[in-house]
Amino acid sequence: MMAEAQERYEILRQIHDNGPVGRHLLAMQTKLSENTVRKHLEKMAESGLLLSRPSGMSLTSKGESLIGPLAPYFQKSPALSDMEKKLQAVLSMERVIVVRGDSDASDAVRNEISQEAAFVLLRIIRDGFVTAVSGGPVIAGIAEALPSLHMKVDVIPARGGFGNRVEYLPNFVASRMAEKLGGCYHIAHIPDGLSPELFLQVKNEIPRLKEIDKLAAKTDILVTGVDEPQDRSKWTDIPPDVRERLVKEKAVGESLGLYADIEGRILYRLYNVGISREDISSIPHVLIAAGGSHKGPAILAMARAGIRGTLVTDEGAGQEIIHMTAGKKSITGGY
């Protein structure tokens, strides 16, 4: 019975992530035979969980409502649970959630990370909360994965503008998340990478930034990603001499404008509006979402630098981190 229930959950999950989808593709994604998939689909359709259209299978509202509650029972295998415990210890995280696969090999796995992080966010957010969000594809995916609600919340960007994709900018992600939650968003029109002097001058002359500063000081939830600064094309906001130093000193991780080496030493910080490193310790809920084996060193570096809380990642990153820390104690316990 449990094996059958696990198979049906996998089918529901794949339709949720990729629907409308056909039976043949479902068989490939779930690694079940087409005959087995067909039988499950018939039973779930009789239960009112699915809709069959020429374009493929999609979930009804009843089917959608089951994904979240069933996840804790069927999403984890014993091997993943063991990995979560190891990562929680070695990274000194409050909690670690690992999804199957490697984001480097499949965009669907990256979507799973966003979906799981959205579930975490929904479990902790309450009316009156202030939520600060950074940018990037995974964090943008969290906003898209949220259902449409009617909450009295404020959403602010956790940092200024960075990157070249508008849909991944913190301002855009904050507005989209607020739209989904039914709350209010606050935009910070100031780029990352200003000099400390210019940064303070701009902050003092834009009243809206003072409002965001006040909200940032009351942040209840921080949602952030972790990046790896190996791609030098992403360093457009950093002065050339600093870029050379970061390469020389082997920066491997970045989050919230902080660049760190594998030991967690902060090598450089961008001055940006929103959440600073000093604010993190006073934020009740920190949610970190990042995956892919290539981001393992970055996640490790930023955890050692103090970016800790609840981590949602994938097997690819988890295996890389465990390999890198084999035989070592937790971050707080030393080596």
Results as ranks from 00 to 15, higher is better:
Tyr268Lys: 09
Gly135Val: 05
Val109Asp: 00
Glu64Gly: 00
Ala89Gly: 01
Ile238Pro: 01
Gly225Thr: 07
Ile15Ala: 09
Met83Pro: 00
Ala298Thr: 05
Glu179Phe: 14
Gly160Gln: 07
Asn111Asp: 15
Val98Asp: 02
Asp104Thr: 04
Glu34Cys: 09
Lys328Ile: 11
Ala251Asp: 03
Pro137Lys: 14
Gly253Tyr: 04
Val109Ser: 05
Val155Ile: 08
Ile307Arg: 12
Lys43Ser: 07
Gly316Phe: 01
Val120Arg: 10
Val153Arg: 05
Pro191Lys: 05
Leu287Phe: 06
Ser175Leu: 07
Lys329Thr: 15
Glu211Gln: 15
Ser61Gln: 15
Glu42Arg: 14
Leu59Cys: 08
Pro78Gln: 12
Asp102Trp: 07
Leu311Ile: 09
Val252Pro: 03
Asp102Ile: 01
Gln75Glu: 14
Tyr73Gln: 09
Asp314Thr: 02
His323Glu: 14
Ala105Val: 11
Pro54Met: 13
Ser255Gln: 10
Ser92Phe: 05
Ser330Pro: 05
Ala188Glu: 13
Arg95Ala: 08
Asp231Ala: 11
Lys39Ile: 11
Leu300Lys: 14
Gly334Cys: 13
Lys39Tyr: 11
Gln6Pro: 00
Arg123Trp: 01
Pro191His: 03
Leu80Phe: 09
Gly48Trp: 03
Leu91Glu: 07
Lys76Tyr: 15
Lys234Glu: 07
Tyr185Gly: 03
Met151Asn: 06
Gln6Asp: 03
His189Cys: 07
Arg8Cys: 03
Glu254Leu: 07
Asn164Gln: 15
Leu146Tyr: 06
Gly257Ser: 07
Gly128Asn: 08
Arg123Gln: 10
Glu94Met: 04
Ala303Pro: 03
Gly128Tyr: 03
Ala217Pro: 00
Ser55Leu: 15
Asp279Cys: 02
Lys180Cys: 04
Asn18Cys: 14
Val247Trp: 13
Asp127Lys: 03
Ser233Gln: 08
Ser58Arg: 15
Glu249Asn: 03
Gln230Ser: 14
Asp154Arg: 13
Tyr259Gln: 07
Ala301Ser: 09
Lys76Thr: 11
Phe172Ala: 12
Asp104Asn: 13
Met28Ser: 04
Gly141Ala: 09
